[in-house]
């Protein structure tokens, strides 16, 4: 039982990160109408920027956090014109070309990280970011500060995101474009400008995710983005592409599932088992558990 509780706690914090990743991915899918396969690579890039700024400033957390968020927003905004060029005159999601474009961006990021930072070695974040000692420890169960912040920030970020989506003018425009881009154009919602807002917002989410990942796992390597990217797109497809609520449920479930496999079977099998289960789900429900929202 203790193992189970311990792993559920691990799983919830990991799942919170998947949820945020899928949310940022889906936002770009719904509003900018791109499949940003390499969104997690953008996040990992920001982790490296955070690491670099911490090194340079002698672990100034505030500057590190600011740099992480800024770099993620900027990277998203810089890639926007590339995607837009590919998307020109297309009223709907062009999965093929935007995905190839995004994979290219992802590979470039991965290569830059493996050549340009820390001589290609994985980076380790200082304990000040991870928060050090466990807050609570009962037998096998321990709660680390990084886990708490991943969960708390995850909840706040997702609630804030949904508030923005349902209670504000840009959020309304996001939903209108998500439902019917051509209809939104006829009402006078500028697709390009609103699309850019979604790049910026998913960039902001990406910066937060980078911080949480750094606090939760304490290290990163140039290949981390690719591993996570596979999971994010799998979660998104299994939940139903573009289904935000589905992404919440499936993202959190994947985190918990992986943690439980790690606890009871073996950490090295957690990816394989998670993907086998996801494969079975997609065989049973090809449009995803919660249905497409495209």
């Amino acid at each position: 039982m203790e193992v189970f509780i311990a792993q559920v706690i691990n799983g919830i914090s990991l799942g919170s990160i998947y949820v945020l990743l899928v949310t940022g991915f889906n936002l770009l899918l719904l509003v900018a109408m791109i499949i940003h396969f390499a969104y997690p690579q953008v996040v990992v890039f920001s982790m490296y920027i955070i690491w670099l700024v911490l090194e340079v400033t002698g672990n100034n957390l505030i500057l590190g956090a600011l740099a992480g968020v800024t770099s993620s927003i900027l990277l998203n905004l810089i890639s926007a014109p590339l995607f837009q060029k590919v998307m020109e005159k297309r009223g709907e999601v062009d999965i093929n070309s935007t995905m190839v474009m995004s994979m290219g961006i992802g590979m470039i990021i991965t290569d830059v990280l493996s050549h340009g930072f820390n001589k290609g070695h994985p980076i380790a974040f200082p304990d000040t970011l991870a928060g050090g000692e466990a807050i609570l420890r009962v037998g096998l169960i321990s709660i680390l500060p990084g886990q708490v912040s991943a969960f708390v920030v995850g909840v706040i970020a997702v609630s804030g995101f949904f508030l923005l989506l349902y209670k504000t003018r840009p959020g309304r425009a996001f939903r209108a474009i998500a439902e019917d881009p051509n209809g939104a154009r006829l009402v006078g919602i500028p697709l390009l400008k609103t699309g850019l807002q979604s790049y910026a917002l998913s960039g902001l989410l990406g910066g937060l995710i980078a911080l949480l990942l750094a606090a939760l796992i304490g290290s990163a390597s140039s290949g981390l983005g690719e591993q996570v990217a596979l999971k994010v797109i799998a979660v998104s497809i299994i939940a139903g592409l573009g289904n935000l609520v589905g992404g919440l449920v499936v993202g959190l479930s994947l985190g918990i599932l992986e943690a439980i496999v790690q606890g009871y079977i073996s950490g090295t099998w957690s990816n394989a088992i998670a993907f086998v289960i996801m494969l079975l789900v997609i065989l049973a429900k090809p449009t995803g558990l919660f249905g497409l929202k495209l």
């Binding site: 309304r172 939903r175 209108a176 439902e179 019917d180 209809g183 939104a184 006829l186 009402v187 006078g188």
Partner: peptide
Amino acid sequence: PEGRGVFASMSVLDNLLLGAHN
């Protein structure tokens, strides 16, 4: 628009507010 083109998944109020977007 033809075919009424309202946003079916959004509330009546949200649809009206979208008209005032600009």
